[in-house]
Amino acid sequence: MTVPRVTRPHMPGYGTLPADQGTGLLPWSWALKRLTDSHDYWVATVWPDSRPHLMPVWAVWHDEALWFSSSRGARKVRNLEANPAVTVSTGDALNPVVAEGVAGVVRDSVSRQAFLDVVNAKYRTSYDLDFLNTDDTATVRVRPRWVFGLDESDFGGSPTRWDFT
């Protein structure tokens, strides 16, 4: 497992404390638990004309990336094919984990089956590879460049950024 570099993000005007005050920097395990356990996620992409696009998805954290599937014709997938920059957030606005990264459509059956195994375990589904027919469905892997987390109970003392570059 890659352990990202951790820092206190610069948040002018928000009253954030130095990294050694309040809760202090959150451990990567705090973010990883939320990336793994969240039921719903928000995926933000960009239309070709630069308008933002935001949609909810089911997703899983697997192999140091966030994975989801979608119809190949869905706006989010078409946006990602034109511009792979993406931001994904967990569904908890009070204790958010936000990941910015690069998305790619995964086509190999071994990786797609591994994704389905994690999806089926998490969501108690029984999808098979036919569900991810590569002509109709895209399997998307988001490799994070950075991740941001915040514990609401210590708004000023917990903001943490993990860098993967």
Rank of each mutant, 00 (worst) to 15 (best):
M1V: 14
M1N: 09
M1A: 14
T2H: 13
T2Q: 15
P4I: 12
T7S: 15
P9Q: 15
P9D: 14
M11Y: 05
M11Q: 13
P12W: 11
P12N: 12
G15V: 10
G15E: 08
T16F: 05
T16E: 11
T16S: 14
P18W: 09
A19M: 01
A19R: 08
G22F: 04
G22V: 05
G22H: 03
G22N: 04
T23C: 01
T23W: 00
T23E: 11
G24A: 06
L25M: 02
L26M: 12
L26Q: 10
P27D: 12
P27F: 01
A31S: 13
A31Q: 01
A31E: 02
K33D: 15
D37V: 03
S38C: 10
S38W: 02
S38G: 12
H39P: 00
D40M: 15
W42G: 09
W42F: 12
A44G: 06
V46A: 06
W47F: 08
R51M: 13
R51Y: 13
P52H: 06
L54S: 14
M55P: 00
P56A: 12
A59H: 01
A59I: 02
D63Y: 03
D63M: 09
D63N: 14
D63T: 11
D63P: 04
W67T: 07
W67V: 09
F68Q: 06
F68A: 05
S69M: 13
S71A: 15
G73D: 14
G73K: 12
G73E: 14
K76Q: 09
V77D: 01
V77H: 02
R78W: 01
R78F: 05
N79R: 03
L80I: 11
E81K: 06
E81F: 08
A82Q: 15
A82T: 09
N83F: 10
P84V: 04
P84Q: 04
A85N: 13
V86P: 07
V88N: 08
V88P: 01
S89Q: 09
T90G: 06
G91R: 03
D92A: 10
D92G: 04
A93E: 12
L94M: 09
P96N: 11
P96D: 10
A99Y: 00
G101P: 05
G101W: 07
V102T: 15
V102H: 11
G104Y: 02
V105G: 01
V105M: 00
V106L: 01
R107I: 02
D108Q: 04
D108P: 03
V110A: 15
V110E: 09
R112Q: 09
Q113C: 00
A114N: 11
D117G: 00
V119L: 11
V119G: 00
N120H: 11
N120T: 03
K122Y: 07
K122R: 15
Y123K: 08
Y123N: 07
R124E: 14
R124I: 04
L129N: 11
L129C: 02
L132R: 00
L132H: 04
L132Y: 01
T134I: 13
D135Q: 15
D136R: 14
T137H: 06
R141I: 01
V142T: 00
V142N: 02
R143V: 14
R145V: 10
F148G: 05
G149L: 10
L150V: 11
F155Q: 12
G156L: 10
G157K: 08
G157P: 10
S158F: 07
P159H: 06
P159Q: 05
T160I: 04
R161V: 05
W162M: 08
D163F: 07
D163E: 14
F164C: 05
T165R: 12
T165M: 07
